[in-house]
Amino acid sequence: MMKEQKNTADARKAAADPVIQMDQVTKTFPWGGSILSRRRTAKVLDRVSFAISKGEVLCLVGESGCGKTTTGKLVAGLLNPTEGRVLFHGADIWKMDPQKFKAYRRAVQLIQQDPYASLNPAHSIFDTLKAPLVRHGIVRTQEEALSRAKELLQTVDLTPPDDFLFKYPHQLSGGQRQRVSIARALTVNPEFIVADEAVSMIDVSIRLSIIALLSRLKNELGVTFLFITHDLAMARYFAWEGRIAVMYLGSIVEIGTTARLIQEPLHPYTKALLLAIPEADPEITRHKQTLPVRSLDIPSLLDLPSGCKFHPRCLFFIEGKCDVEVPQLTPREDGRLVACHLRSA
């Protein structure tokens, strides 16, 4: 454990104080359990470690069920870890006094995938924005609330703000609703935003405007991001100068700077993903040499493979090694971390 913490630290840029740090976080959920079946445990996250410095973007990429949403909720303090620690500026969030914890909850905001589900349909946009402003004592009077809400709508390009303030979610398009969720996250001037599939449900033609808005928050307000997505192309676009972490069945298999990781993926899973992705360019996509996998079936979280969790599907599987030993995230010369026996040999 000590060794891995050191590795993580080494791989990071000199910036000393990460805003958020996941330290060997494991999360399990009870599963089933009735007269007919025994109660089992699903290990959704397995000793996940990473750190994100001020102003940085880390994209967490993985497929459905890999644990990326759970990671987002742990970072935002909506779930507590079964083992390990989640640190905010070095302090364990679950050991903070209530005052500090409240400050952390203000500083770290979560934007979720579904803008239809995340807004209360009975609340006007103004009510939605006012609630956190009042709760956190940011405004005292109705006038202050109104003027701050207008500013926020300006920031997220819902202009003129007066056209939107007293509308209800059902009167807005999906893109506009997602802008309201972002405005709500901004009410408390967050230092860190977890964006979980924030554009996946938005129409293609307007998706980029939401990405542009998030980039502006990053560049102009210095917000630090954990950007969670299944879409590697979008991850590359948003984290062009940041890092990508690839997750598979609850473990990070590779973390590196975006350009290096995409140019030269080291983990067989990352490689298989990159070669498999259909791309919106006929020449590129029809000339891909895909990397076959040994099995298309994704193992169940209730019955995870021994050793490396990718071994039943991996083309480079080494019998007696990959199915026995769990590979550790190990640093490479270029600062990348890879958890693969092929790479550590």
Partner: peptide
Amino acid sequence: KAVPTVTGDYRELFSIPGSP
């Protein structure tokens, strides 16, 4: 222009203003 590629060259992307 609104859809990124993974392995293509980097190019700036744009959204279409307004909504459907």
